[in-house]
Design a protein around this nucleic acid. Sequence first.
DNA 1: TCTTTGTTTGACAAAATCGTCAAACACACT
DNA 2: AGTGTGTTTGACGATTTTGTCAAACAAAGA
Lengths: 195, 195
Amino acid sequence: MAIRDTGTEQLIKDTAKRIFFAEGKLNATTQDIADAAGMSRTLVNYYFRSKDILFEQVLKEGMEDMRVRLDKELMTDLPFKKKVEKFIDIFYTELTAYPYKEAFMISEINSHGWVTPPKERSIPLQNFLKEIQTAIDDGLVKKMKPVNFIINLFSLMAYPLLTRPLFKWVFDLNAPQYEKLLTERKKMIVDLLFI
Amino acid sequence: MAIRDTGTEQLIKDTAKRIFFAEGKLNATTQDIADAAGMSRTLVNYYFRSKDILFEQVLKEGMEDMRVRLDKELMTDLPFKKKVEKFIDIFYTELTAYPYKEAFMISEINSHGWVTPPKERSIPLQNFLKEIQTAIDDGLVKKMKPVNFIINLFSLMAYPLLTRPLFKWVFDLNAPQYEKLLTERKKMIVDLLFI
DNA sequence: TCTTTGTTTGACAAAATCGTCAAACACACT
DNA sequence: AGTGTGTTTGACGATTTTGTCAAACAAAGA
């Protein structure tokens, strides 16, 4: 008989992603995931044979999602500044949903080793780097290595979402106040990146 | 008899910090820590009664260290820009030694709850925020909420160190290349933060 | 030297987490 | 309705991780 699609396998992965990427519980157990998905833990072993395989799969998909999202966005045919603004918009949505995605990846990479996937050179990324260089030459952006421009972009977007609990504590801010700050940052980041 | 100071208690904490903060193994076991410290695991339970207490202690000291370091640096009597440059220098050293400190804190906070410590208002921080506002009024810094200036500073410094494995992969860089990039960033961050 | 007390360890018990198996279940097909 | 196959579950055992205890050890004071 053909494989029935009960959506269970997807549900498991989605739940795992929610717990790891959204709730930031980086050392959750398979029981935690099963409970959150409202099913028996045995099912996790039925679809993915072991905890390690599930984790590896989630990690892999997380990286792949990021790569696809990034490439797709970089291929749009917009003027440079517009493209960056759109990029920030997209990433803000993504990061709001999954603020701890990168942290989980890093944690997994550091705990178990990592077999670096072949990583064929991303053409859209190469092009974007060239666009940045052009923007620098045109005096739109301060002089720097194009790679640093991208690193700055990611840093300014991702870090405040990752460390939200810490910053809220350091600056004595409540939830709505911090939320407001984050949305304000979208415009500010553009102002900062461009001269 | 008085308590003998064998340095063991400190060694345990230092080792834990190394594993958590430096090596980024956020879900290390007490056995891992004991092995790395070259001692029996029982000693961990002798000095700290349970794993939770050790973790909580390490977390607490980590936050305290950060607060002290930050306040001390903010109290120095230097012109604004010099102060920021010094700040970046200090933090670069700190972050190179412990790139995953914030990640560990966030992970712990998200996994177990968190009793927000009273957090008396830090006077040096308040003063620094005023200094930033002055710099903005003087046209040294782009117009933004002073809090965002600090968040930018942290983000630009910390994130590239936290996500080093990812960026190295995305941009196809080897260790020395990434190292070079990081040192170059110190100057670049100043250029970026100031008009 | 002998005793006392703090330190360290190995061995054991307890708890948590994980993987497997047989049986129950549900759906498609005849 | 009856059969077959994929799905789900509860129960069990294996492994990992954690906590405890008695005994060995080391250093300071009598």
